[in-house]
């Protein structure tokens, strides 16, 4: 291919290095592009697999129970994450509203993570234990009965549809690849589902909700929502106390000088 203009007086210079080597050799260009786009991801992601630079584990955090995992799958299916975050930021205005800010180690068994990116509704990471089971039942049935003015849609089908034990076990089997469950726990899932489900149904009955059974989807969802953010609370408390002590000592040392 000739470039007649290259030799004309108007032409600034012969082909540049970029043009001669890279643009001419498309394979080299592709390889260099691959290198360029790989560096950032490698530098940022790979260290997270190391103990020192990665998220600090919290020993008290354990996998979800079968019923909670079933509830988590419902949470994913309904797209709750589109409107609700599960990440309390370390600001006083957030901890006043929601509770202790969220630590990385609390998410160890979150597959997938459900941090969210938009709060059309409030953060849910510290929802566990905040309201009684019946609140969640009423709220999913008619959000405006518990939160006047809410723009959340109602989820009446959760009160009718039922979870499938085999389906929950299939999820557990997949998650056992990552060490969430043992085979014994998977085998015992039907009993575990029934037991935790009956506990919730019992509490709902006390609140005069009669027509719900242990395998209704709403029961699984309540189990999950009541678990949210409850693990590792003590570990965080200890950690906070430690940080405050350290800061206090630093301040004291500073003022002493």
């Amino acid at each position: 291919m000739s470039h007649p203009d290259n030799n004309s007086p108007q032409s600034p210079a012969p082909d540049s290095w970029h043009r001669r080597t890279l643009e001419h050799k498309s394979a080299l260009f592709a390889v260099l592009t691959t290198v360029a786009i790989s560096v950032g991801g490698l530098v940022e992601i790979v260290p997270l697999f190391t103990v020192s630079a990665g998220p600090q584990a919290i020993a008290e955090v354990t996998p979800y129970t079968p019923l909670e995992q079933a509830g988590r799958d419902i949470y994913s299916r309904e797209g709750c994450v589109q409107c609700h975050s599960q990440m309390v930021r370390p600001f006083r205005a957030e901890t006043l509203r929601y509770g202790e800010w969220s630590r990385a180690g609390e998410y160890t068994f979150d597959r997938p993570f459900l941090l969210g990116s938009r709060r059309i509704g409030p953060d849910l990471h510290r929802l566990g234990g905040k309201y009684p089971d019946v609140w969640h039942y009423e709220h999913m049935k008619d959000p405006r009965s518990t939160s006047p003015g809410s723009i959340m849609p109602a989820y009446p089908w959760l009160l009718e549809d039922r979870i499938d034990t085999a389906d929950v076990q299939a999820s557990m089997t997949a998650l056992s690849t990552f060490g969430h469950y043992t085979q014994a726990e998977i085998d015992a899932a039907p009993a575990a589902l029934a037991k935790q489900g009956e506990e919730i149904v019992g509490r709902l009955r006390q609140s005069k909700v009669e027509n719900i059974e242990a395998d209704h989807e709403i029961v699984a969802l309540i189990a999950y929502l009541q678990r949210l953010g409850t693990d590792g609370k003590k570990a965080i408390k200890d950690q906070v106390a430690q940080t405050e002590r350290a800061q206090g000592e630093a301040v004291a040392a500073g003022s002493a000088q």
Binding site: G41, E44, I45, L48, F49, G54, P55, D73, A104, E106, Y107, T108, F109, D110, R111, P112, F113, L115, D167, A170, S171, T173, A174, L175, T177, F178
Partner: peptide
């Protein structure tokens, strides 16, 4: 991801690592 059923799977990465991979 590890498939559980034909329509459901669980990611290889978890928690904050999953979050960082996803936002990458």
């Amino acid at each position: 991801a590890m498939p559980a059923t034909l329509t459901r799977s669980y990611p290889v990465f978890s928690g904050m690592t999953d979050a960082l991979v996803q936002w990458w």
